[in-house]
């Protein structure tokens, strides 16, 4: 089994990017942001991808982009497809909105609430998106962004106990197991 036939069919109707095949039953496609909604609808209603497995984000700070990943599952065909949408990072941080898909899958509202809190990606139409998700009283920049220094924050906030040492596990175990350096 491969995702190629599906990809070819999609490519005929949508201007989409390259196909990355992770496994025979799992592939990722990068899609333009304008095509996302139509593609999701098509996949859900025509191709049998009825289940939104997850909606998450990656912070590509070096490339100045946020990547949203919409992972869909096709129960009948036992295969997954991930749609990647690239957002301009700086614009998102300044508050550029992203389209909500909570009307396609109601569970998406929860993911979008989480993304709003953890990455600061705004989905203005999503219900309850501005409520606290898991953080209570957070004051800093959203903690999952890579320019947020968790170690520095932790050291400043949580009064670390002095005397803690950190070791590289590989080096440490090597020194433990082979003290002669063999």
């Amino acid at each position: 089994m491969t995702m190629q036939p599906l990809y070819q069919a999609l490519k005929a109707g949508f201007p989409i990017g390259e196909l990355t095949e992770q496994r025979p039953d799992l592939a990722f496609i990068t899609v333009p942001r304008e095509q996302l909604r139509g593609l999701l609808l098509h996949l859900r209603d025509q191709e049998g991808f009825t289940h939104l497995v997850l909606l998450t984000a990656v912070d590509w700070i070096e490339e100045d982009r946020f990547q949203l990943t919409y992972l869909l599952h096709d129960r009948k065909g036992a295969r997954d497809i991930g749609l990647r949408v690239m957002l301009p990072r700086q614009a998102v941080i300044e508050g550029a909105p992203m389209e909500s898909i909570h009307d396609l899958w109601p569970t998406a509202a929860t993911y979008q609430r989480e993304l709003r809190e953890m990455f600061g990606i705004d989905f203005p139409d999503s219900p309850g998106v501005n409520e606290d998700f898991i953080l209570e009283g957070w004051r800093e920049i959203p903690p999952y962004r890579r320019d947020f220094d968790t170690l520095k924050y932790s050291n400043e906030t949580f009064a670390p106990r002095p005397g803690r040492e950190s070791q590289d596990p590989a080096q440490y175990m090597k020194a433990q197991l082979y003290p002669d350096g063999a």
């Binding site: 968790t150 932790s154 949580f158 670390p160 106990r161 803690r164």
Partner: peptide
């Protein structure tokens, strides 16, 4: 609870309970 353990650099986990 002693020094943060593997969560020593976490943004939402306390590192020292006796504080």
């Amino acid at each position: 609870t002693i020094n943060g353990g593997m969560y020593f650099d976490s943004y939402n986990t306390i590192t020292r309970l006796d504080e």
